[in-house]
């Protein structure tokens, strides 16, 4: 039983690592405050679920989930390219509410609040599925490391530090912001697909703000613009979150207590270590 529990934790950590890493590419490396990242995770989850429930093989549904999320991500980046800072944060946060409304009301596609049950497993054996998600997580670490250390990645960082300076040095910042968002949301979509196949269910609660807040706390705790930080941040905070189950006796308050702990962690980080554990830039 413990074994299965650990497998489940490590599977979630692997999937969350992909989400936080991809969020770090846009926020930490490119400086685009995207508070709607979870929308692209949800798009991936729904896309993969609908395809899989219609008999499409898993390897196509996962890839399609990434592509669809990436297309949406690129479109949002193109539309919001003139927005910066708080304004971009507000617009991307607004996407979450749109996603909730669409997923609840497009009944013929999403079954609304009832959600989509019976999403087939990719791999029946949970241990093997954990290895599979870890492999994809490791692949995303490798690819994001290569991307952020490439010439394109350096341009992302230049845009984050000073977009005007990047543009007068001949860099098409509009194009690079779209590339950053497309790469980030591709992996968000993949992570959404892995989540849907792991839970065998997806419903509009995937777009809940709690989820994006959790991802943001993990990102900030690990540190912006650090690949290592994203993975370590997810690992430590997920472990901390799970340990609450064993500390709090009354199961009905575990959720609320977890949110309190996350809030305290965030406050302590902001006070004592504003760049998080491995962060390379200020929040």
């Amino acid at each position: 039983m413990i074994h299965e529990y650990l497998i489940s934790i490590l599977t979630f950590i692997s999937i969350y690592s992909i989400i936080v890493l991809s969020l770090n590419v846009v926020i930490g490396f490119t400086g685009l405050i995207n508070l709607g990242h979870i929308v692209f995770v949800g798009i991936g989850a729904y896309a993969s679920a609908i395809l899989a429930l219609n008999g499409v093989p898993w390897y196509i549904s996962i890839f399609a989930a990434g592509i669809l999320a990436s297309v949406f991500g690129a479109a949002i980046a193109a539309i919001t390219s003139r927005l910066k800072g708080d304004y971009l944060a507000m617009v991307t946060l607004g996407l979450v509410f749109i996603a909730v409304a669409v997923s609840r009301n497009w009944i013929s596609l999403t079954r609304g609040a009832l959600g989509l049950p019976g999403i087939p497993d990719i791999i029946k054996n949970n241990f093997h599925y954990m290895i599979f998600t870890m492999a994809i997580s490791a692949l995303s670490v490798f690819l994001f490391y290569r991307l952020t250390n490439s010439e394109t990645g350096k341009i992302f960082q230049a845009i984050r530090d000073n977009e005007v300076a990047a543009s007068v040095l001949g860099k098409n910042t509009y194009f690079y912001k779209i590339i950053s968002m497309a790469a980030s949301t591709f992996f968000a979509g993949i992570a959404g697909s892995l989540l849907a196949h792991h839970l065998n269910f997806v419903d509009p609660t995937i777009f809940e703000l709690d989820f994006i807040v959790t991802m943001l706390v993990m990102l900030i705790a690990g540190g912006l613009a650090s690949i290592t930080g994203s993975v370590v941040g997810v690992f430590i905070l997920y472990a901390l979150s799970e340990s609450i189950r064993f500390i709090v006796v009354n199961p009905s308050i575990v959720g609320a207590f977890r949110e309190m702990v996350f809030a305290v962690v965030l406050i302590l980080i902001l006070i004592f270590r504003p760049r998080g554990m491995f962060g390379k830039v200020d929040i």
Binding site: K154, Q157, A158, R160, D161, N162, V164, A165, A166, S167, V168, L169, G170, K171, N172, T173, A225, K280, V281
Partner: peptide
């Protein structure tokens, strides 16, 4: 033209308040 196209056309500039990439 957009700023990046003007830069590529051959104009390079500095700013009154420096605009370096601080975290790089």
């Amino acid at each position: 033209l957009a700023p990046y196209k003007i830069a590529k056309a051959g104009i390079s500039r500095t700013f009154q308040l420096t605009k370096v990439f601080r975290n790089m």
